[in-house]
């Protein structure tokens, strides 16, 4: 649904995006993660058609996004910091959105009102707190029935109950209408619960992009204890050791490779104890970047 190919963007000599590729399948919930300054917001702004690429292409539903209102009309966008015009209240914003989006669903708007009950429709939205403004943004955007949702830190500032409600609305939309969602967040635990695809961005490049299952199957945490006097043998070809620590006779290894083949290879060393544990998205993120970022290497050490 979203295809970004070879996207490059420079900001006054600083390469924000470096030949970036990104693919979001239709109906997927795609988590875009990366350290600060990796280029997540920049990619999103290209996907929304706000930024002009230096090179490369950005397509949504098979069409370029730049200056294409037809494509933008099927997209909804909730940035980290939503913009409301001066003195605009909810009723006024609804009229604005109705005039821009032909897909705006009045019925849904009224239905969603039961969720966002704390918002006074007649009060200027700028006078609300950040969390309330975010609720208002969700209310408006979801009322447009977008086919593609692009979210940047979407639930940042929301209370836990509202977070759950917002995700619930969003995921039911995905389930019922096949909405494609691209979500950028630093809250990896939350993303792990909702995403089925993940892309890790680092210094403007896509470090890896897989389905979450594939990703979690491909990296494994191994805890093994060897018999006294035995040394850990080098890993066979096809496996990559991302991290290793030793405590007494217990070795803790983070290894990238196919899980079953890895288990067989390690079992051949006749360990006393051998456990293969799945990694959380947060751990995967940290260990993947550990090979790239000196700062993260230090954390791991």
């Amino acid at each position: 649904m979203i295809q970004v190919k070879n996207l490059t963007k420079n900001f006054d000599g600083f390469k924000a995006l470096d030949h970036l590729d990104l693919h979001v399948p239709k109906g997927a919930v795609y988590g875009l993660v990366g350290p600060n300054g990796s280029g997540k917001s920049t990619v999103i702004r290209h996907i929304l058609g706000s930024y002009i690429p230096d090179s490369g292409t950005v397509e949504v539903a098979g069409q370029p996004v730049w200056e294409n209102p037809a494509v933008k009309a099927i997209m909804g966008n909730i940035p980290d910091d939503f913009y409301f015009p001066i003195s605009a209240d909810m009723n006024e914003m609804k009229k604005h959105y109705q005039s821009f989006y032909s897909s705006f669903d009045q019925e849904r708007f009224e239905k969603l009102a039961s969720i966002f009950t704390s918002i006074d429709r007649n009060k200027p939205l700028r006078s609300f707190s950040k969390g309330m403004q975010k609720q208002a943004a969700f209310w408006l955007v979801m009322s447009c029935r977008p086919q593609v949702l692009v979210l940047d830190e979407p639930v940042d500032g929301l209370d836990p109950v509202m977070r759950r409600q917002v995700w619930s609305v969003l995921l039911s939309d995905v389930a019922e209408n096949g909405t494609t969602v691209l979500v950028s967040s630093h809250n990896l635990r939350e993303l792990e619960d909702v995403c089925d695809h993940v892309g890790i961005l680092y210094k403007g490049r896509m470090l890896l992009e897989r389905s979450l299952d594939e990703l979690q199957n491909n990296i494994v945490k191994v805890q093994m204890a060897l018999a006294p006097g035995r040394e850990l043998a080098p890993l066979p070809e096809g496996f990559q050791l991302l991290h290793q620590s030793v405590l007494g006779r217990v070795h803790t290894l983070i290894i990238r490779g196919e899980q079953q083949a890895l288990e067989a290879a390690l079992a051949a060393q006749e360990p006393v104890v051998l456990d293969l544990l799945p990694l959380s998205l947060e751990e995967i993120f940290i260990y993947e970047l550990g090979g790239q970022d000196d700062g993260i290497k230090e954390i791991l050490v």
């Binding site: 929304l48 058609g49 706000s50 200056e67 209102p69 494509v71 009309a73 997209m75 913009y83 821009f100």
Partner: peptide, 16 residues
């Protein structure tokens, strides 16, 4: 930046 990005993410062309 906030307003510029928001306005230009709407389904409308710059010429419009």
């Amino acid at each position: 930046s906030r307003s510029a990005l928001a306005i230009h993410a709407l389904p409308v062309q710059r010429r419009q």
